[in-house]
Amino acid sequence: MKGKTIVITSGKGGVGKTTTTANIGTGLALRGHRVVVLDTDIGLRNLDVVMGLENRIVYDLVDVIEGRCKLSQAMIRDKHLPELYLIPAAQTRDKNCINSEQLTDLCRNLELEFDYIIIDCPAGIEQGFRNAIGPAQEAIIVTTPEVSALRDADRVIGLLEASELHRPKLIINRIRPGMVKRGDMLDKDDIVDLLAVEILGMVPADDRLITATNQGVPVIHDKKAPSGLAFSRITARIDGDDVPLMDLEPKGGLMDRVRYLMGINRSEYTHA
């Protein structure tokens, strides 16, 4: 059986690539798959922190590529899920110390043993980006509903298409349904209309996600978090389930609904 390599990319920084990688990786492992999450953000590694594994790092990606250790030695098993592994990025090197072919070889090896390899791509469109998209068979673009993020996403989609990674899918992160409702934030239709790609899911802006991140536990473990639910649904779609896309709308009591209808909602949480 052969695994699939998916790159999570965005162009713009800070839109939620690392968060998405951690949650999709965890989500797929929760569904019983063998998964590796691979941090290619060399010099600015984050994925280990988000997954709560930074204390366990001995070897990293660059050590593997430069032959200082075996692949299995750099793979860190997740705290909760035995079939989920992290390969951390090196923190003391830069993006030019590896190349796309080396990373592709590594992923081809991983694909023999794992169902999914999820690559956390660095921001930008330079060497780090090229390395990260090299091995991928599929791409997921993360964006936020902001014009600048969309512009970068558009650029990245163009570059992916030019390198034969067609039909990338889109995750819109940090949506605030109340703002969308008031017309202060771009909505799903505006974004899809502009980027002309298939939408994989929408993740609301969520305080519980920040709490979870700070605790080193991907928010998808938190059954009460709206963003966690959103990532569960996204994972199911990646895994081939037919989960309809739901418009984000506030959940809660009567007062919340009234506020929502009046466009003055504050607790902007729901599922997507």
Binding site: R151, D154, A196
Partner: peptide, 23 residues
Amino acid sequence: TCRSGEVVKHHGDVVVYGDVNPG
């Protein structure tokens, strides 16, 4: 779709069978 960063320069007429995005 002509996406951000794409530049098309042509001496004759140009027809885009898709969108031309910002950038």
